[in-house]
Design a protein around this nucleic acid. Structure first.
Lengths: 247, 247
DNA sequence: ACAGTAAGGATTGTTCAACAATTCCACAAG
DNA sequence: CTTGTGGAATTGTTGAACAATCCTTACTGT
């Protein structure tokens, strides 16, 4: 028995650094691939918030059985991208204003904690800087869609400073949910553009090793964004829901 | 079209305060009920970490079809309670040491932020106090299982101070995952007992309105618990995995 | 004795068809 | 305008079937 334990431990340490590639090797089930397709479609707005996803139609279109498709629906429901109503089907979720408030509440906790944790020594963070510059470039060329995406990535990189797998996953989900909000707002330009200079300020503080300073800026940033979003969102969300009721 | 919007809005405000009861009305699907049963069984250790959950056996035992059972498995896999290996089945997850470290990393961020947010004015928090006292009582009567449960609830109440639905859900999951760890450790007494006085200290600070003080205590608490857990856990987890390999 | 392998049995992955349960919609009745 | 009341459409769930994969075991050759 003890011999087998040793064998396992050895196997763990035999080829260090290779374990990270396991995700690439492990094949995914059909349901997960289908979920991936739908997730992407939802993110890019092909399926709009409030819309119903018919088992039959999508099953036929994608060439998978209803059972497999339902497994995919479960996955996305758990990510809060779809809402499952018993005997009625699944719908692309319409986040409520309370959802938006809660999302920002969690973002403040998570992102600020991540930023606060940077050491007191100056250092370079190329990945974060990259996202900021992608945002600048997108704004310069007027590519508003990319601007929104870059902004999202910027915040994901900030959260990644925490070094926690679970935090990364959580933030990914929060941001996927926020995408639904943006689809209802449908004004990426006016919303994202004004935050570009603040991205730079935050990055500067981070690279200067001033975690507390960066945290203060980020907190204000998130408070402002939330306020702006909540103010305009309430009526839009109601209108979106009403549009469904009409249709 | 605008007219219909008004109609919806009116309907929304017509019977205020009733929407909250929607969750009670909505029945749950079979898959969700099955997931609930399995979740409970896993929490109480009926299915031990590393054990495989046979589709056929459990399906027969619970009287549901394989398809429905698989939907339930998906749910629990997403909660990190089960691990799904393609063509091999689902297993009760054995958290790695890295998982434990990451869980505590997130707990520090979340719970500390929640506690830090309490106002500077003294107030009473009966729900938190209740959990602390349940823990005391369990320790006095030597009911070690309840002691662990009470301790878990205490921390859930602390996190609930954040007032965020998403934080509550996240913490619930983290703690469900930690239960797997405790099942492998299998020493609820020695682990939890020593933290009882610290529960009181933290509660005192919270009720005194000293959020920052409570945060410091809680941080130290979590650091100590993590250290103690990680130190003893590595070999146990390896042994558990090896036991599977042998069996 | 031992690594490699080939056959088989068992389990999961996926699909399909069927039926029950529920919701939706239109229309009639009060 | 509200309140039943049908039938059509959709989802919920099951059971069977087959393919794909994994695990065990026995066999082979060295």
């Amino acid at each position: 028995m003890t011999g087998t334990i040793v064998a396992v431990v050895i196997e763990d340490r035999d080829v260090p650094g290779l374990e990270a590639d396991r995700g690439l090797v492990s094949r995914k089930s059909t349901a997960e691939r289908v979920a991936g397709v739908l997730r992407k479609r939802i993110a890019e707005g092909f399926f709009l918030p409030g819309g119903r996803l018919s088992e039959q139609d999508i099953g036929n279109a994608l060439g998978v059985s209803r059972n497999t498709l339902r497994e995919a629906f479960r996955l996305l429901t758990h990510e809060r991208l779809l809402a499952h109503e018993l005997n009625r089907g699944v719908f692309v979720r319409i986040p409520s204003v309370e959802d938006v408030v809660d999302i920002y509440r969690v973002r403040k906790i998570i992102e600020c904690a991540a930023v606060r944790g940077v050491t007191a020594k100056p250092a370079s963070f190329p990945k974060i800087r990259e996202k900021v510059e992608i945002g600048d470039e997108a704004a310069r060329t007027g590519n508003w869609k990319d601007l929104g995406t870059a902004n999202v990535w910027f915040h994901q990189e900030l959260a990644a400073l925490s070094g926690s797998e679970r935090v990364n996953e959580l933030v990914s989900r929060l941001i996927a949910e926020l995408r639904l909000v943006f689809h209802i707002m449908a004004e990426p330009r006016r919303f994202h553009e004004r935050y570009l200079p603040r991205n730079h300020e935050i990055l500067d503080r981070v690279e200067a090793g001033d975690g507390l300073g960066a945290e203060q800026l980020l907190m204000k940033y998130l408070e402002d964004a939330e306020e702006q979003l909540v103010g305009a969102y309430a009526e839009r969300a109601a209108a979106a829901r009403a549009a469904i009721a009409v249709e």
